[in-house]
Each structure stands twice: as C-alpha cells, then as structure tokens.
C-alpha cells in the first residue's frame, strides 16, 4: 500500500469517526483532532481500534498517546511506519 492509498483510507476512516463534529472531509487534514474537533479518550480509542482493524496493524504501546494522533499527518505517519515495519 503506497502513501496515497494510506492517506485516502485514513481520511475516509477519520471522516466517519469525526462525523458528529460536523467537520468537512476536505478540511480534515488541516484540523487538530483535539483542539478543533474535541477528540476525547473514547474517540481516541475508537480511532486506534479502527485504524488497527483497517490496516491490520498493532500500534505499539509507547505510541498509544493522544498527542501522537493529533492530526491527519500524525495518523498517516503511524500507519505508514507500522506497515513499513511489517513488510
């Protein structure tokens, strides 16, 4: 899976998770999930569960912090790194 495919899949996934915040999908890559969308602990856990299932990866314990998943680039970066390591 290349970076563009990861990005596309991640945007779709995040759009679903943050649907209730009313954010436009086109703006997702420019917002801060915590400050702008109010990501709380439950939403964060949901995000982790969904990306692990969607990409068949396991996010390492030391990365399981909200500050590591504050925006789209963070999420894509973690997914990309984990997929690269599993190859």
């Amino acid at each position: 899976m290349n970076l563009e495919e990861i990005k596309e899949k991640t945007v779709t996934l995040c759009a679903q998770i943050f649907e209730s915040s009313g954010v436009d999908t086109d703006l997702l890559e420019y917002v801060d999930f915590v400050d702008d969308l109010g990501m709380d602990s439950i939403t964060f856990i949901t995000l982790i569960v969904e990306i692990e299932a969607a990409f068949d990866i396991t996010v390492p314990d030391d990365l399981l912090l909200i500050e590591n998943f504050k925006n789209m680039d963070d999420v894509i970066g973690v997914v990309f790194d984990q997929l690269s390591e599993s190859v």
Binding site: S41, F44, I45, I48, V49, E52, T58, V59, D61, L64, L65, I66
Partner: peptide, 9 residues
C-alpha cells in the same frame, strides 16, 4: 496502568 488504551491492552 494507562487508561486511555484500546481494549486489546
């Protein structure tokens, strides 16, 4: 233990 973790943890 940390509490904001996915259920698998």
């Amino acid at each position: 233990a940390p509490v904001v973790v996915p259920p698998r943890v």
